[in-house]
Design a protein around this nucleic acid. Structure first.
Length: 264
DNA sequence: GTTGAGCGTT
């Protein structure tokens, strides 16, 4: 009763499916249940997750027992901020098997031939096999490349993680990630500080201008002065063309972002 | 550390 989506679809014939979009990637069914159960009887909640990473895709399916309750949930929860993100609740248009759905209820089943083309994005395995076999180069190149890059990155991450930790599908146990995250973050912070002086001799040229974005936030004169007085290397090029002339011009043109009220 | 258009499992 508490675990949704673990035993497959129970009985969707008498239920009304709602599609919840724009949820966070860490929102689980248990998090959505109390929210949706307040407006009616929720018989099932399912959050599709990625086959490789196991993380949610950012949307969920909530099945209600009665249509009026589902409608109420849509009206009340649509646009609600959950976990810092505004969710969108609406009636599902398709069923688990690509059935056509009206008002969240299945009105007519579809033949098996139609099943399969419900998702625009192919499955990772299908795409892999397809590409490996046919190796088509036509089509949108940029789009294909972008997609491939994305998949590659994700697969790598998954692989890396798989090595570190055995295959333990504890998707619902991401609650304890906070401590781990914090710990790792702290450690990394120290590491960076330690390695800071090391790169000092590695690329002195780059260190000359490590950051200039925050400088314009509050110091306009010191910035310029420091640039002038700090130049410890006269070098042979009297013209600092290395820096974008546009940047310099812009910097001296609007060096006072604080006095925006004047301009505005 | 986490992307963000859209429709789904045992």
């Amino acid at each position: 009763m508490s675990h949704f989506g673990r035993s497959g679809p129970p009985d969707i014939t008498d239920t009304y499916s709602l599609l919840v979009l724009n949820i966070t990637f860490r929102t689980t069914a248990d998090d959505l249940f109390p929210l949706f159960d307040k407006y009616g009887k929720v018989v099932d909640i399912f959050i599709p997750r990625d086959r490789r990473t196991g993380e949610s895709r950012g949307f969920a399916f909530v099945r209600y027992k009665y249509a009026d309750e589902a409608q109420k949930a849509v009206d009340r929860l649509d646009g609600k901020v959950v976990d810092g993100r505004e969710i969108m609740v609406q009636f599902a248009k398709y069923g688990p098997n690509a059935e056509r759905i009206t008002k969240g209820r299945i009105v007519e089943p579809v033949p098996r031939s139609k099943i399969r083309s419900r998702s625009p994005r192919r499955r990772y395995r299908e795409e892999y096999r397809d590409r490996d076999h046919y190796r088509r180069k036509s089509r949108s190149r940029s789009l294909d490349r972008y997609d491939r890059d994305k998949y590659h990155r994700r697969e790598r991450d998954y692989h890396h993680r798989s090595k570190s930790r055995s295959v333990s599908p504890d998707y619902y146990g991401d609650r304890g990630r906070g401590r781990n995250d914090d710990e790792r973050r702290s450690h990394r912070s120290r590491s960076v500080e330690s390695a800071s002086p090391t790169r000092h001799s590695l690329s002195p040229r780059r260190s000359a201008s490590p950051r200039r974005s925050p400088s314009r936030s509050r110091s306009e004169s010191p910035d310029r002065r420091s640039l002038n007085g700090q130049s410890p290397v006269p070098q042979r090029s009297p013209t600092p063309r290395s820096l974008s002339p546009r940047h310099v011009t812009r910097d001296s043109r609007s060096p006072s972002p604080r006095n925006s009220d004047i301009d505005e």
